[in-house]
Design a protein around this nucleic acid. Structure first.
Lengths: 174, 174
DNA sequence: CCTGAAATCCACTATTG
DNA sequence: CAATAGTGGATTTCAGG
């Protein structure tokens, strides 16, 4: 299990650098990022060819982008619905109090629940938008009750049921 | 640009098979899927070792999972915020009429807008939940106006601004 | 559906420009 | 920073059970 290709430096909570970092990211890097985002398992040779570089130069750039945290990892896109029935719900969660500790405690709980596949803190009529995948609506009711009763300061949960995917996520415009 | 590893059969709109397909997916396949979802660029050798198979047998299974559409593709996870300032908004969209053609037309439009990184048709107080990445709130206002004025039958858009990621999407529980 | 060997291809490392 | 060339190792194919 050596797998050096996926052992990326963590660099968590690194400050966002925006323009400042752009000096390190030229057009070729952007093309590399776009290609890897679309085809995460493209061979280094093909990648190099696509950006008119030698394989060694391309590999050097990829390693630099990984080390800089611009590439956070590589993932296969799995069609879970072929594995088992999936009900996806979006949950709008409101907390009762809004001290930093309250947010942190709630987010730690979210991290521990695998069915919560993504969560966003938002600004508006509620506090968090959760994307949750469960087997059926009863499972969601149980999970929601659990969140409400876990002394996490959850005041309210509004559920929206997903019918179908209108546009699947396939990466950001680069 | 041979890259056979990413040239997957499309198999779009294949019927969901659920339990029926499970006869083709054993525990080893599930482990392979989970591993590739977490580490999309793991070497075939390491993958084979992790599931106690020879490299050729592991590769055969991966190819079968790709052909069956269970693996839809491979993607690098990019930290766009290091590239440029990003404002993410969630837009709740209501259409004026709800014939199949109206949905199709609207979804075709979404597909053509790169800033709309994901879209879900939902059941509830509105019709679609959009995840949109723009540079700032003015860009979003322009884009929203464009959607409202494009004769797409968009009746209403409610915007929620994302503050930060509470739990990043890193795949589904398998 | 697996193993194991053989062949091909590729990642990775100097070295040099 | 990039190209070239080399080699060790991985991917992939194929024969056989």
């Amino acid at each position: 299990m050596s797998d050096r290709r996926t052992a990326l430096p963590r660099n968590v909570n690194a400050p966002a650098r925006h323009q400042a970092a752009d000096s390190f990211v030229d057009d070729r890097d952007l093309k590399i990022l776009a290609l890897l985002q679309a085809q995460g398992r493209i061979s280094n040779q093909d990648l190099a060819g696509a950006v008119n570089l030698s394989p060694s130069a391309a590999l050097q750039r990829v390693r630099r982008l990984e080390a800089a945290g611009l590439i956070r990892g590589y993932h296969a896109e799995i069609d879970v619905e072929q594995l088992r029935p999936v009900l996806t719900v979006f949950a709008e969660v409101t907390l009762t109090s809004h001290f930093p500790d309250d947010f942190a405690r709630f987010e730690a709980e979210l991290a521990a629940i695998p069915e919560v596949v993504a969560a966003h803190q938002i600004s508006g009529a509620y506090d968090y938008l959760l994307e949750v995948t469960v087997s059926d609506i009863n499972s969601w009711r149980q999970l929601a009750d659990q969140l409400l009763g876990a002394e996490l300061g959850v005041a309210k949960i509004t559920t929206t049921v997903k019918m179908k995917t209108a546009k699947p996520f396939r990466g950001y415009p680069i």
